[in-house]
Simulated scan of single mutants.
Amino acid sequence: MLNKVIIPVAGLGTRVLPASKAIPKEMLPVVDKPVIQYVVEEAVSAGFTQIILVTRSGKESIEDHFDRNAELEEALTAKGKEELLQAVRNTLPTGSQLISVRQDQALGLGHAVLCAAQLIHDEEDFAVMLPDMLIDTNGESSDLKQMVAHYYEHQCGQIMVEAVPEHQVERYGIVDCGGMPPAIGTSSKLHNLVEKPTRSEAPSNLAIVGRYILPGKIMHLLRKTTAGAGGEIQLTDAIKSLVESGDLLHAFTMSGDLYDCGNKSGLLQANLAFGLKHSETAADLKAYINKIVGDGLLLSQ
């Protein structure tokens, strides 16, 4: 069964400094929950029960967030705040387990995944989720859940992608599907990956968005992968080696809205999008937006 997901949370969060100086970037809030909680909930809703955090010193608040807080629960119980009590009790969804391993050096995403190798059996497939990429599926079935279904249907690894504007391909890992890009909500065979290609070199405009389902054997490839861009061990290099060796992988095109909460603009956009849907904040936020743009019809019901 596909039940393990690796979430690397050892990054320094330099793109959101100084907010992340003393607070892990994964703990920055989107409305009333930290980003990492949304990602864990997404994983559990897709069927993953073992959440493996690859962490480092100074990130203890992430684990604390998913732990029980007896003092807080007692205070909420005494005040009769049942809804808040359930919210703080259920930060880690029922039936799931949180496991932490350490990354002692910041040597890239591939190295972070490799740090969890002792928890992955040789023939055991697993998922990888980046903790700062937040996906809003607007109430529909999650893209990750759909990708898991494609994994079982096609019996092969999956990499989630999203079409990006042509002038932005240099920012991402770009996939090559042999001229047969998958339609939204579907997957097709992956032929190659190119890390941050120039516009003229890009085989498509399908960018990797931080959701992977990979075969356990990739751990062996990561051990052999030498440092690439930025002196780091790149996960995309190991995936490329996997494809070149003949292993079947698919690219799955997501349908939801993606927010990169690892940068300031993306975090603000996520707060705006989720805030406009939250029962406690939607009305006030709509009124405020209408006020600052001077158009009372902008977000009228």
Rank of each mutant, 00 (worst) to 15 (best):
T198A: 12
H250P: 07
S241C: 08
S241I: 01
E244R: 15
K196A: 13
G246V: 13
I184R: 10
E232Y: 03
A238P: 07
G228C: 05
L267N: 03
N263S: 05
G256V: 04
N263A: 02
V194D: 04
A183L: 14
P182T: 10
G230N: 10
L267E: 07
S255H: 14
D257E: 13
I184T: 15
K196L: 02
G178D: 10
I239V: 15
K196V: 05
H191Y: 15
M180W: 00
D257I: 11
P181T: 08
S255C: 07
G266A: 09
L221N: 05
Y259M: 13
A202M: 11
G246C: 10
I233W: 00
G179Y: 02
S204A: 05
N205V: 13
L268E: 12
T186Y: 08
G231N: 06
M219K: 01
I213Y: 05
A251D: 01
L221W: 01
A229T: 12
T198W: 06
F252P: 08
L242M: 09
C261Y: 10
L258V: 14
K240D: 08
G230W: 05
I233N: 00
E232W: 02
I213V: 14
L190Y: 08
Y259K: 10
T198L: 13
L221G: 09
S255R: 14
G266F: 08
A183S: 14
L249Y: 11
I213L: 15
M180E: 12
G179K: 03
D247P: 00
G266D: 09
N263I: 01
